[in-house]
Amino acid sequence: MKVSELSPAEFSKRLKRRGIYLKTGPFISHIRSSIPAVARNLSLLYSDHQLMTSEDFADFHIELFRSRGLRRWYRPQVNFSFDGHIPFKPLPLAQAFPMFEWTLNWCIANHSNQYLILHAAAIEKDGLAVILPAPPGTGKSTLCAGLSSRGWRLLSDELAILRLGDMKLLPLARPINLKNDSIDIMRQYTPDATFGQTSHDTAKGDVAHMKPSTDSVIRSDETATPTWIIFPKYVANENISLTLRSKAQTFIYAAENAFNYSALGLKGFQAMEHLIDSCHCYDFIYSDLDQAVEQFNSLPLSEEITP
């Protein structure tokens, strides 16, 4: 059953009482919350996602709840509980939905060593995938959101999940986390897309989530072959450029920014080696999203540059 098959009122009632069993890519999360903003954003941004009819097993059992006591009145807060344990300090109540997204990322990144998990966005077209690593503030999410509204399928905007056996990328297709200026840029660039509430003054500035396309959610069991690793960088007024990047540097960066590269030990090294060997690695500078989309639609399939 899809989330959208429940009315918002039914959805929030179920979320509050026995919780929902939400499928995102290979993971099932049992989520409970009585916080209205969490229910509202979930039913809006996850409306194409599946609710499991069998509620026997969940990978993660999580709850978001308001701090009790006096604080409830003068400085309301939201807490995250991971099956009864509270690993993080509370956040202001207004950040309840961003907290849900961050903590679900944490659950996945910390409990899934059957995969190699990179801190990167990933998109796919014709079965071939681009991995977009890059430090925060480089326009990675903006580019990922832009491409996913122009014919590319979203795999993930934050966690690139690689299956160790065949090194396929598994889709996660969750809302795209946009920060600060990107929020308005994407609202203008994709007027048809659905956006959640903007949360102000979080640790990462203003944050809003953009709903993933229906197509990427429906196809979230379809894996993709990693083919390019591209480090994007938004530089205002700069000419677009795609330049080869050293594989050694790419390896080191990807390893340092993977969530569980070192936990995987030798397996991690072998998987990363295989990944870097089988991908074309580039640096990419852009200042205009349309140009960027055009470039991505003609990415070279051999190690030569055709800008």
């Binding site: 099932i28 097993f57 990978d59 409990h111 899934s112 060593n113 059957q114 070192s262 936990a263 995987l264 030990g265 397996k267």
Partner: peptide, 21 residues
């Protein structure tokens, strides 16, 4: 053992193995 459970057990085992090293 169902696959869902094996995923979690082997994920923990990978951590335990790594920790031995």
């Amino acid at each position: 053992i169902p696959e869902q459970a094996i995923n979690h057990l082997s994920s923990a085992q990978i951590l335990a193995d790594r920790q031995v090293d």
